[in-house]
Nucleic acid binder design. Structure first.
Length: 218
DNA sequence: GACCAGGCACATC
DNA sequence: GATGTGCATGGT
């Protein structure tokens, strides 16, 4: 039932042919990517953009500056992204970690190796596996494959994973098979999100699904 | 007005 | 260990 490398790469090819390169992550700096990764938890990206625009407007899209805001002020600025109270708290947890350990420098942070960084990030309140891996791959250019709800749904609809598979199972499914290639990891996840927004919601064969025929399902 | 969106922590059994 | 629930805005 788990896919072969060939199957995984065929899925990638199909999605890329449909959508083209997605140019992820949408963000001008590694820090903006980190902030976006927390703000987009269970939230539409359009809403995150509004929140980030507010931070830019105030000229405080900077780890030290953001940490200097009161929690209430921070929450009011990120309001459009939803869950603004919890996310203000989560952002502050991350900012505290980032400033205390790396002086708010993504370049310094990136010098550490992947396993250590992943462990550190997962220890920060409000950062789970998807957020940690998004920061690692898209902000710090580490070789880690990002899994999300779409990934599971798409694989499951196409008979390529079990319904009960967890985050780590699915991550291993990809990383044990496809080349260790950061641009490929980047694009593959982005294409899964693009596909998942409109397809594979209920059946593997919606009329316009770019993955029709994948894994030779009837 | 229901439903969904690029999750996560915490309570409870 | 599995399951349920709160968190909240904005678009369709």
């Amino acid at each position: 039932m788990p896919p072969t490398k060939k199957t995984l790469m065929e899925g990638f090819r199909l999605m890329l042919a449909r959508f083209g390169p997605r140019g992820w992550w949408p963000g001008e700096t590694p820090f903006e990517v980190m902030v976006g990764a927390i703000l987009t938890q269970n939230t539409n990206w359009k809403n995150v953009e509004k929140a980030i625009a507010n931070l830019k407007q105030e000229d405080i899209l900077d780890p030290h500056a953001m940490l200097g805001l009161s929690p209430q002020r921070l929450a009011s600025l990120i309001k459009p992204a939803g869950y603004f109270r919890v996310k203000a708290k989560r952002l502050r947890s991350f900012l505290k970690y980032f400033v205390e350990n790396y002086d708010g420098s993504a370049r310094k942070m990136a010098k550490r190796d992947l396993p250590q960084l992943r462990e550190e990030l997962l220890a920060v309140n409000g950062i789970g596996p998807e957020t940690a891996d998004s920061i690692l791959l898209y902000a710090l250019k580490k070789d880690i494959f990002v899994i999300d709800a779409y990934t599971k749904r798409i694989l499951s609809r196409h008979g390529l994973c079990a319904e009960e598979d967890c985050y780590d199972d699915l991550q291993a499914l990809f990383m044990d098979r496809i080349e260790k290639d950061i641009p490929l990891y980047n694009e593959y996840h982005a294409l899964i999100v693009e596909t998942g927004k409109d397809f594979c919601r209920t059946s593997p064969r919606c009329a316009e699904c770019p993955l029709n025929g994948w894994n030779n399902l009837p």
